[in-house]
Structures are given as C-alpha cells and as structure tokens.
C-alpha cells in the first residue's frame, strides 16, 4: 500500500465518522447517512483494491478507471447540485411565506388596535 492509498483511506474514515456524528445530532436523515456511508466505504474499497475497479471499468466498457471515476463524480455532483437547489428553493419559499404572513398579521393587528 502506498502513501496515496493510505491518505485516501484516512480521509474516507474521517468522512464516515463525520457522517455518523451528523446522524447522531439528527442533521442527516438515516437514508442520507446510509448513502454517504456507502459512498465512502466504496472509496475505501477502491483504494485498497484498485485492480477490481480497473476490471469493473473494463467490463463496463468505460476504458480507464479514471474515466469511470470522473463520470461517477460528475453524476454525483449533478445530483448534489440539484439537491442543493431544491433545498434552497424550499427555504426561499418558506422564508417568503414567513415575511408575507408577518406583514399581513401585523397590519391586521394594527388595524384592530385602532
């Protein structure tokens, strides 16, 4: 095992610990934690057995392992950007509703107190 493999493994273990901690404080749902954990376990597996990854990418006809990793990473990034966009949009909508309700309620209260 070379130094790069070891660094990747250490980083992935650290990431898994983080996932567990975020699951405990409930900032990640069990399903999300599970998906993140699978991703990082996959990274550890690929770091320990790089040859399986090469075989797998050859079987899938994707050529070099790196290509497959790049494809997967782009897919993952697209998914995460979409998730982020949805979350932000939801937050924006909630925020707008809050401001609107606050404005309306305050006006109704002011009118009643007159």
């Amino acid at each position: 095992m070379n130094i790069v493999q070891m660094l990747i493994i250490i980083f992935a273990v650290y990431a898994i610990v983080k996932v567990v901690l975020r699951l405990r404080d409930k900032s990640l749902s069990p399903v999300e934690s599970f998906l993140w954990a699978i991703l990082w376990v996959g990274v550890i597996f690929a770091a320990i057995f790089p040859n399986t990854l090469i075989e797998l990418s050859n079987d899938l006809g994707l050529g070099k392992t790196l290509n497959m990793l790049v494809y997967l990473s782009i897919l993952l990034l697209f998914y995460l950007v979409f998730r982020l966009y949805s979350a932000l949009d939801k937050l924006d909508h909630r925020f707008n509703t809050l401001v609107k309700e606050l404005s309306i309620e305050r006006t109704i209260k002011r009118k009643k107190s007159k």
Partner: peptide
C-alpha cells in the same frame, strides 16, 4: 391608504401577493 409593510424587500411579486392576500382576508 392601509399600509402593509414588508420587513424587507421581497420584489414586486412578493409585495403583490401580500397585498392581495391581505385584501381578501379582510
């Protein structure tokens, strides 16, 4: 006029929706 005051700038759409909803409620 009755004034509905948004605590921050929402944009013309946000303002219109607040005004319309307020009007129907009263």
């Amino acid at each position: 006029a009755i004034v509905v005051r948004n605590i921050m700038n929402m944009g013309v759409g946000g303002a219109s929706v607040a005004g319309i909803e307020y009007s129907f409620r009263i």
